[in-house]
């Protein structure tokens, strides 16, 4: 482990939290404008976290205390780790070579799992119902998510994200496989709101039905940790999609050649811009234009429709390789 890696390991989470919260703020603002409201200032999520950290952390009497308190930390840690696997534009991922897409898949699952376990541990019926729903939802969307990753493994003969990021996917596929990759992209975009527990798949946290579900009993520092991990996960998920599907660099698109610091700054901003586009398209617009599905409706959507799309994409990729 070089000093450079250690520097990254410290700087990336801080940067990740900052970006995650900023994107959350932008998301809230755009969603508000879409529904003819003014909306909160973009720095509102920072204030929310600050406020939550000041508040008392209440543990319910009939909760399993250590589990209840451990789960927010687990969720936060896993989303932080997730961030370390994602290459920022031309910057290499700090934990490059220590894991691959499979690890990312697990880290994404781990957060949802932590929330579900926390929900079960809080001993409230609302949380238990929410946790049950989260488990069902996870079982539904993990399959298309895994299919997408298998599709990439087929193309690159490797699970390594660095390999994938180094060669844009669109330059190495035949037209048939190209359609396949496009279908995988669509499947992943549909999975995104479910993975991030956003409308129309925020079934596990349905406010009007089960009073925020898994998070019902969480407060103070614990809630702040969940809030942060949610924000970071949102950013990481969008970033992952950018790395997989829109890997074009600024110099590639506009045909300019940059070097040195300018290259890093311009490419970094370009990457953030791409992430923002994906974030708005997959999260903000979707959550503003849909109502909440029922759990069995959501399950059917993933098991039948999204799975079909993903498997068809996989088949096309397999044919095209």
């Amino acid at each position: 482990m070089t000093p450079e890696t250690i520097f990254y390991a410290v700087a990336f989470p801080i940067l990740g939290i900052f970006l995650g919260l900023t994107y959350k703020g932008i998301d809230r603002r755009i969603s508000a404008r879409m529904t003819s409201r003014i909306g909160p200032p973009i720095r509102q999520p920072f204030w929310d976290v600050g406020k939550l950290l000041l508040k008392e952390t209440v543990v319910p009497e009939n909760a399993v205390k250590w589990l209840f308190n451990a789960m927010p930390i687990l969720a936060f840690a896993s989303s932080m780790t997730l961030l370390l696997y994602i290459p920022f534009g031309v910057l290499r991922a700090p934990l490059e070579g220590y894991g691959d897409l499979i690890v990312i898949l697990y880290l994404l699952t781990l957060q949802s799992l932590a929330m579900a376990v926390g929900g079960f541990a809080s001993g409230s019926p609302f949380s238990s119902v929410g946790a049950q729903r989260e488990m069902v939802l996870m079982m539904s969307y993990e399959m298309p998510l895994a299919t997408v990753i298998v599709g990439f493994a087929l193309l690159y003969k490797s699970f390594s994200l660095t390999t994938i990021a180094s060669t844009p996917v669109w330059t190495m596929v035949s037209p048939v496989a190209g359609i396949g990759v496009l279908l995988l992209f669509v499947a992943l975009l549909v999975v995104t709101p479910a993975e991030l527990a956003k409308l129309p798949f925020d079934i596990a946290e349905a406010e009007t039905e089960i009073a925020e579900g898994m998070l019902a009993e969480y407060s103070g520092r614990n809630l702040a940790l969940f809030y942060l991990s949610d924000a970071v996960r949102g950013f990481a998920m969008a970033a992952l999609e950018v790395v997989l599907f829109i890997p074009f660099t600024f110099s590639y698109v506009f045909g300019v050649s940059l070097s040195g610091t300018t290259l890093y700054i311009v490419e970094g901003l370009w990457f953030l811009f791409k992430v923002l586009i994906i974030y708005i398209a997959a999260v903000t617009v979707v959550r503003t234009s849909f109502g909440r599905f029922r759990i069995e409706q959501a399950s059917r959507i993933f098991w039948v429709h999204v799975n079909l799309i993903a498997l068809l994409g996989l088949a096309l990729v397999w044919l095209g390789v």
């Binding site: 529904t35 003819s36 009007t208 849909f290 109502g291």
Partner: peptide, 16 residues
């Protein structure tokens, strides 16, 4: 009813 089914955008639009 739009709000109860988690469709807040519709709520805002109708109340507008």
């Amino acid at each position: 009813i739009a709000h109860e089914m988690g469709f807040d955008s519709l709520l805002f639009w109708i109340w507008k």
